[in-house]
Simulated assay, not measured.
Amino acid sequence: MSSDVPSPPKGKTGWPWDLPSESFSLNDWDDSKPTISIVTPSYNQGTFIEETIRSVIFQDYPNVEYIVMDGGSTDETVEILNRYDPWIDYWESTPDDGQAHAINKGLKRATGDIHGWLNSDDFFVPGALRGVAETFISSSCDALSGGRLLVDEDSNVTGWSIKPSFDPWRGGNTFPQDSTLWRSYVYDEIGYLDESYDFAMDFEFFIRLYKHFDILDTNHLIGAFRHHSDTKTRQHYHSVGINETRRAWETHLDAPTENISEDRDPGLFRHWWFWISHPRFLALPYVVQKSSEWLRS
């Protein structure tokens, strides 16, 4: 492990701030394994993006291509990107036409076999990409969707989410964006993100993925989704997000729109039948505690 990797800010410990063990190298590459390309769109998320970057470059999987598309941030983001430049395959900081445009620019530049994007205020859990690669190697699936941790502004674990399989005819309208990845050939069939969407570009893309390809649901935790006051989810879901979600639903699905949840944070007992039929998930408080200890260790 290179000692040249920037030291974490004072007081930051645990994942992904502590350096991996000496046996881990950022430079190892294994041509026998698939390459995973991760794109991070960014704009003025200097508070969180360093944690995002470290969670990608410290993954214990050798073949990771990392691309950051920043929209011309005016905070400390560019200074952070410069510090981590040797460990990012490509980054730029130029004005763009929105989040979907930034993501598309990165995905079109990506050369990996498996693609995904990770927003600049979220992060991957330890071992996430190794697990993703192993699942794709052992499966014929075209895409996979896993579980996620829920964290607060200080990266404290507040919950977790392992969703039931997406079923528009029974309700439920989300894919965990930070925990969903796909093979690069899917664009030949469904194209890239629809840049006319400002909020639900991920949901609209995943619906097209769902309609044309096999998405494997896995219980493995992959991403950590951060709830904080400046997230799009908290600020714009009811004003913009719900309408874009309905638009995507009506465009691509022959299913009743009343199955769309009006609440982006549905809470523990929203889908009561799921919890009754999956009693292992009632261990939520224990898992939250253990996940927090795991990230801090």
Rank of each mutant, 00 (worst) to 15 (best):
E22V: 13
Y90L: 15
W169A: 11
W15F: 08
T111K: 15
S25F: 09
P62V: 02
I80V: 15
A133R: 02
T74H: 09
V56T: 06
G191P: 04
S55N: 09
W160T: 12
Y286P: 00
W294K: 13
V287L: 10
T74E: 14
R247L: 12
R247E: 13
F206L: 12
D70G: 09
D214V: 04
S261P: 03
P86I: 06
W294C: 06
N44Q: 12
S229V: 12
P266V: 05
G112K: 04
F281G: 02
Q45R: 15
D254E: 15
P41C: 07
P168S: 04
S138H: 13
D89W: 10
D254P: 01
L181A: 01
H101P: 03
D217F: 06
F58M: 01
P266R: 05
D89M: 05
Y90E: 11
S145G: 07
E134I: 02
P62R: 08
D31M: 07
N104T: 10
G116N: 09
E76V: 13
W160H: 13
L253W: 01
V151P: 07
G112S: 08
V151L: 03
W273L: 13
E244W: 01
K232R: 12
E258N: 14
I114M: 06
S25L: 07
F203S: 02
S155K: 12
V125C: 13
V157R: 10
F123M: 15
Y197L: 00
K33P: 02
G267H: 10
V125W: 08
I242V: 15
E79H: 11
K211V: 01
S2C: 09
K33T: 03
I222N: 08
F124R: 03
Q59M: 05
G191C: 09
F136N: 10
K12G: 05
P62W: 04
T40R: 00
T35D: 04
P176R: 06
L216E: 14
T231E: 03
S37L: 01
F48N: 13
R170K: 15
W91D: 10
D113P: 05
V56C: 03
T40V: 14
H220R: 14
T218S: 14
L221S: 00
S3W: 04
G267N: 09
T245D: 03
D194L: 00
E65S: 01
D217W: 07
S3R: 11
R264V: 12
L221Q: 00
R296I: 00
W273T: 14
P95H: 10
G98H: 06
F205R: 03
E50A: 08
R183E: 09
E153M: 09
L181G: 00
R226A: 09
A283I: 03
T135S: 14
N104K: 10
D30I: 03
G191Q: 11
D265F: 15
R109G: 00
T245F: 03
K10C: 04
R247Q: 13
F123L: 15
A100W: 00
E22C: 03
W294E: 08
E50V: 07
L253C: 07
F124M: 14
H220W: 05
E195T: 15
G14E: 09
R83K: 15
Q99K: 10
I36K: 01
K105H: 09
N219F: 07
H115V: 11
I162G: 08
S292Y: 12
Y192R: 06
W160E: 12
S25D: 14
G127W: 10
